[in-house]
Amino acid sequence: MYAQMIKSTGQGVKSLDEMEPEERAFQERINAGGKIEPKDWMPEGYRKNLIRQIGQHAHSEIVGQLPEGNWITRAPTLERKAILLAKVQDEAGHGLYLYCAAETLGVTRDELTRDLLSGKMKYSSIFNYPTLTWADMGAVGWLVDGAAIMNQVPLQRTSYGPYARAMVRICKEESFHQRQGFDIMMKMANGTEAQRKMAQDALNRFWGPALMMFGPSDADSVHSAQSMAWKIKMNSNDELRQKFVDLTAPQAEYLGLTIPDETCKLNPDTGHYDFAQPDWDEFFDVLRGNGPCNTDRLEARNKAWDDGAWVREGLMAHAAKKRAAKLAAE
């Protein structure tokens, strides 16, 4: 998922009896499946938590342009180039919807951007991994967009109206991305020896990081319990990870590729796939800024922002002049 390790108030979940009337009404509305809208009363913790979560999701879409943008100028056919470019364009659009959703909570896109660029706010760990061959465009679509969907489909029912509506639009496009990624993998897996090798290598490198996207187990986390009570988190990390493996493992088999985990097998007793946990030490290294591409990604975003400053200022100055001229004419 694109939001990882989101901290909530840190206090346990209050019971309805412990709440003031306002908060009780708010919680009862959520319990009944109702939506909270921007003008409605909401606890400060709910608002702050959502800003962090939506902001992190938005940043992930934005930074997520980079690993795939890395291959646009090397795409092997005109059609593949167009599909990849359209996909990355969709991700920019997702970023835009999500920043808009966050803005309804009283934070501006510029503020969120500054927090991303300074490293204060995070984006998904997955985008700190490099894309090294064309097969990575397949693996990213198949696994990364695939994992994102696992988390985002339930979020279409999240309690915050603008967030839920953004998710509805985003999910349609993400499942399209996932299919396109799988299509690239099919071509590669059924291609020449070199292409098969690229496909397997991509799966080897992205399998663990894809499992990490769901975050470490949060079965006992107070943060998660609160987020679930607020319905801004709909499932536990382990639940989603299991669902992802159950869906993906047969697809890998269909492709004739091997998941880099000998223990990954269908368990006849549970009806689910067993699998090994990814390397959580590596995950925490990535979160601390020590992933293979953290430095490159932040540098690229900062450079884009700094290089673009004169453009933003220029266009704003022109708009101000036009407004002034219009006013003077009235």
Partner: peptide, 25 residues
């Protein structure tokens, strides 16, 4: 298309991608 992901504002990322897509088509 070389601009992908590094335009001055998000709206420009989207607009430049549109232009590139039209031209590729």
């Amino acid at each position: 298309s070389e601009w992908c992901g590094v335009a001055p504002v998000l709206e420009e990322d989207i607009a430049l991608a549109n232009v590139a897509l039209d031209l590729i088509g």
